[in-house]
């Protein structure tokens, strides 16, 4: 395994999450402990195994492709912090 190094500030940026200096320091030390523990998996031989993406065996999950009632636009917008003309409103994304 590539030697695990977790740069908490860098990863938090990937996750779109601002951290205070105190949080960054706490998480750095706590998550380093967790990664040290997780390294136990190095001892498991998984040669020839496929990853198990689901807990059970895969099964057919498709449902008939039929229209059914959904939320109205008003219902979908009801919990939005900011709306405009029936749309979700965000800060400007294009100049």
């Amino acid at each position: 395994m590539k030697s695990p190094h977790l740069d908490v500030r860098y990863v938090a940026r990937l996750a779109r999450l601002d951290l205070t200096a105190e949080e960054a320091a706490d998480f750095q030390s706590q998550l380093t402990d967790v990664l040290g523990y997780i390294a136990a998996l190095d001892r498991v031989d998984v040669t020839g195994l496929d990853p198990a993406l689901e807990p059970g065996d895969p099964f057919c999950v498709a449902r008939p492709d039929a229209a059914r009632p959904g939320l109205t636009a008003d219902e979908a917008l009801a919990n939005a912090p900011s709306t405009h003309d029936g749309l979700f409103r965000t800060p400007r994304v294009v100049e």
């Binding site: 395994m1 590539k2 990937l14 998996l41 998984v46 195994l49 496929d50 990853p51």
Partner: peptide
């Protein structure tokens, strides 16, 4: 994340298979 996905996530999914 890139560079760690196989080492952690895929590895864990394989160990999950052993636990199953």
């Amino acid at each position: 994340s890139s560079g760690y996905y196989d080492a952690f996530y895929v590895k864990a999914q394989k160990v999950r298979k052993l636990i199953r």
